[in-house]
Write a protein that binds this DNA or RNA. Structure first.
Lengths: 322, 322
DNA sequence: TTGAAAGCGCTAACAC
DNA sequence: GTGTTAGCGCTTTCAA
């Protein structure tokens, strides 16, 4: 490995001079500059970023904390973050937290010791506690985790309202909501939006809670249909959950959208792969990831970011299930 | 930030002693040890890994290069890698390469300067060239990239054989293969397995090439069906492609599996979400990721790994599309 | 305009 | 057993 010393020797200048031309800081005569540049070229020198980190206490790395990359909502988000990071010269450290605070903490400690510059956090639910004390640039993604932390999220409540209204307009009069996990903010917001519209329109309704897994959604839907055979609309808190519901519907011999209309939430690619294709509330997933990364980098490089909450609008995408 | 010096001062010993008890190396009296431990506790000291990296020229990080996390085959792989890495005390740097050699190279340079300890590589197709010269522990995942590099992959050819035989046994006599991108090794192997069986059994067949995107698969299938209306079986090179084919089939009013039987490859969660659910050749995705990470870490910590190729068996999962 | 040298936090000879 | 010290590779005063 060739170091700055090698370059200095080769160029017959001091390491200080090499450092100066490397960073375009301070003086360096045209002559010296040329010799250094030549030496760098010749020796194929690349500055060692660990040494730089040690001095500057920054690393050019950002941490990306998400519950589980295996949940199809997250890959696109991750991709967006990574794209922006790469462009800005950062590198992304990838951390699946499984919503466990312990894992989050563990990763945080590890990353802090590596001088990670900031973190994008799709936080675990319960721990709204002490991210502020983490003392590091943080941006919350998809989930609001506190007043002092910049947040990027969708307008979940409004999306849920649109979904429910849509179902009602399509003639549904008894609508079930497959709610996401308790304590997860977007799930709660969606449920709230649903309840609002149901009340406003005086619809019959029922809410059951599921996690975001397809299998559980299927089971819960089966139970639901047994208890309430006259349900004619389902608003699922995620597209995956909706897919589970559709399985249950097919199993019990119901046609979609004939007997029961279904709408999901998220707008992941899955929607188009289902037959019938799934009506959903589309989030601007990639853009949210982008925005989060931009906010974080801005915060890292220029200190505090101006605004705190970035709520992205959602849009109803009508497909075959309604 | 509290450093080793602070600890030394507080414990009234030298930094060397602190370092010794920290790393359990060399001597330290019970008394000294106790005082140091107390000081660490008291000051909430955490060793700085950047400083350690600078000395040891290692970082406790591994790079994970994959084409695109957005392709549903990869998240589970990534998850497995990350799980093993975390367990072993490593941290994963996440790199989407888009199959572009330039991006790969760029990332590689960046990571090398950070003293990344090794790389797991789902390589871009064309560049079988010079990974060996990268001079860093590498494990190839999903794609074979050269004799000298340990590889973890599925038995693609055999899986394709099983798929094709299965279609034949189900009575298909004119089978189309939606092949993956040219030059991507697994795609070629699957096509080869398909061709073999087709020849052995004297079946009518046709092969068209697609990338792994659903939209293109749908278009290509439509064309295919127009040219060869009597196709009665489709072997898709991936589950996503299969989903595309199913869309086309539905559009042209064909029933699955009645008119045309369909089989995919990969075994991603999508299979169970489709209606009808998709028969596929199941890869041991998580296990492959695990294995790759284990091999890499072993290589990092104990030098060369024993065996070079780890080919995982695949299994036919029969569902409703056949 | 340049170079010597201190220091970022930690490790490991080496001397005591 | 323990402490002193010279690095790891880079940046930045500060004096020349």
């Amino acid at each position: 490995m060739t170091t700055i010393k090698d370059v200095a020797k080769y160029a017959e200048v001091s390491v200080a001079t090499v450092s100066r031309v490397l960073n375009d800081r301070g003086y360096a005569s045209a002559e010296a500059r040329r010799r250094v540049l030549d030496a760098i070229e010749e020796l194929n020198y690349q500055p060692n970023s660990v040494a730089r980190s040690l001095y500057h206490k920054t690393s050019g790395m950002i941490g990306l904390f998400m519950p589980d990359i295996t949940n199809p909502f997250f890959p696109e988000l991750a991709r967006a973050v990574e794209d922006v990071a790469l462009e800005a010269g950062y590198t992304v450290v990838f951390c699946n937290t499984d919503e466990e605070e312990a894992k989050e903490k563990r990763y945080f400690d590890a990353l802090k010791q590596k001088y990670v510059d900031g973190i994008i956090l799709t936080a675990s639910s319960q721990s709204a506690s002490d991210y502020a004390q983490w003392d590091m640039p943080i941006v919350a993604l998809d989930r609001v985790i506190g007043k002092h932390i910049p947040t990027v999220a969708s307008d979940n409540k409004n999306g849920a309202r649109q979904a429910t209204i849509h179902l009602a307009e399509r003639g549904c009069s008894f609508i079930a909501h497959l709610k996401g996990p308790a304590g997860v903010r977007p799930a709660d917001d969606r449920a709230a939006g649903f309840e609002e519209v149901v009340k406003e329109k005086g619809l019959r309704s029922v809410v059951v809670q599921t996690n975001f897994s397809i299998k559980e959604a299927e089971q819960e839907t089966l139970k639901l249909l047994a208890d309430h055979p006259d349900i004619d609309g389902i608003f699922a808190a995620s597209d995956v959950t909706a897919a589970g519901a559709m399985q249950a519907l097919a199993q019990t011999g119901r046609s979609v959208p004939g007997d029961v209309k279904v709408i999901g939430f998220d707008g992941i690619p899955l929607c188009n792969m289902l037959v019938p294709s799934l009506t959903t509330v589309q989030q601007s997933i990639y853009q949210m990831g982008e925005k989060a990364a931009q906010l974080l980098i801005q915060q890292i490089e220029h200190g505090e970011s101006e605004s705190r909450e970035h709520i992205f609008p959602v849009s109803l995408i009508i497909r075959e299930t309604t």
